[in-house]
Design a protein around this nucleic acid. Structure first.
Lengths: 149, 149
DNA sequence: GCTTGACCTCAACTTAAGTTGAGCTTGTAG
DNA sequence: CTACAAGCTCAACTTAAGTTGAGGTCAAGC
C-alpha cells in the first residue's frame, strides 16, 4: 500500500481554506500535529484535513478553540480515526450541541416564545393578547434561555 | 394603564444575568437604548430584557455583536416589538441560522459524513470500507462544509 | 548550481467583546 | 440630612484568535 502522501503546510492551507498562519497557530495550541522533514518543514498526514474541517465547523457554531482542543484529545494520535473515535468525540459535545441547536431554532422560528422579556407577565403584552399562550402558568419571566427543544 | 415601570441598569443586569459593564457596552454599540433621568442615570423600558436575551442567545451560537446590532435595527425604536417585528428580524437571519443548525447536527450526529478529509477518495479509507457510502459519486473531497441539511 | 517561491521562527500588531479601576455624582433608607 | 450603595465617564487592561512582517532557510525547476 502506497502510504498516502504527506501534505505540506501550504497544501493543507489550500485544501482546507485556512491560512498557513492559522495552521501554525492551531499546531501551537495542540489542535493539530505535524512532524518535520530533515529541513525542519512541517508535514501533515491526511487526517489533518478532517481535523481542520471539524475545527472550522465547531468554531462557526461558537465553540472555542480550547473546547475543541479538549475534544480532539479523544482522537487517536497515531492512526486515522475510526467512526468509533468520532462518535466518542461528539458524545462529549452532545449536550452543548443540543442546547445550541435548540437556541438556533428559537431564533430561526421567530422567537415566538417568551425569552425572559417580562412582558408576558403584563396584561397588555401584545404577544399575550394575540396568542394568549402560557397564560395559565402564572406571572413572571419564563424561559430566560432555552432549556429543552 | 400604569406605564410599566422603568428599570435601572442594575435591575436589568440582575434580571438578564448580564454585567452592568456589558450593558453599557451594548448601549455604546447601539444594541440597546436608554434614556436618562435628570441626574444622568440610565432608565430602560422592559423591552430591553428581551433584546438582551436575544443578544445572548445569538451570541452563544456564534453571531457577532455587529451582526446582531444590524438585525436589531429592524426592531422599532419606540414601541414594544410585535410578533411581526420579530419575524422580520429572524427572516434576515434564516439562511445563516439554517446553515448553523445543519452544521451543529453534523457535529452532534458523529460526523459520519465526509467533511472534506480527502480520505473518501482513497480505497483504504476506513469509513468507506465500512459503509461504502457515496462511493458512486467519484473521487475527491466532498462537502467541505455543509451546504444543505 | 542557482534562483525563486515555499517554509521557518518570533515578536508585534489587530479586532472583538468585554472587565477593572479611579475619581466623581445620585438617590434612597434610616 | 447624611451615609453609602448604585450610577456615571473614561482610560487602561484582558483574552481569544489570529495576521503581519522581519530576517533567515529549503527545495524544485531551469
Amino acid at each position: 500500500m502506497a502510504p498516502a502522501k504527506e501534505l505540506t503546510v501550504g497544501q493543507v492551507a489550500m485544501r482546507s481554506g485556512v491560512a498557513v498562519s492559522a495552521l501554525h497557530f492551531y499546531e501551537a495550541r495542540g489542535l493539530i500535529r505535524s512532524h518535520r522533514t530533515s529541513g525542519n518543514q512541517r508535514r501533515y498526514g491526511r487526517d489533518v484535513l478532517r481535523r481542520v474541517a471539524i475545527i472550522r465547523v465547531a468554531q462557526e457554531v461558537g465553540i472555542s478553540l480550547a473546547e475543541i482542543a479538549a475534544a480532539l484529545q479523544s482522537l487517536p494520535e497515531g492512526r486515522t480515526p475510526t467512526r468509533e473515535d468520532w462518535n466518542l468525540l461528539s458524545t462529549g459535545w452532545r449536550d452543548e450541541l443540543d442546547r445550541k441547536i435548540s437556541q438556533l431554532k428559537k431564533l430561526r422560528d421567530g422567537l415566538t416564545d417568551c425569552i425572559g422579556c417580562g412582558c408576558m407577565s403584563i396584561d397588555k403584552c401584545p404577544l399575550r393578547n394575540r396568542e394568549d399562550r402560557l397564560s395559565a402558568q402564572g406571572p413572571g419571566a419564563r424561559r430566560l434561555l432555552v432549556a429543552e427543544p
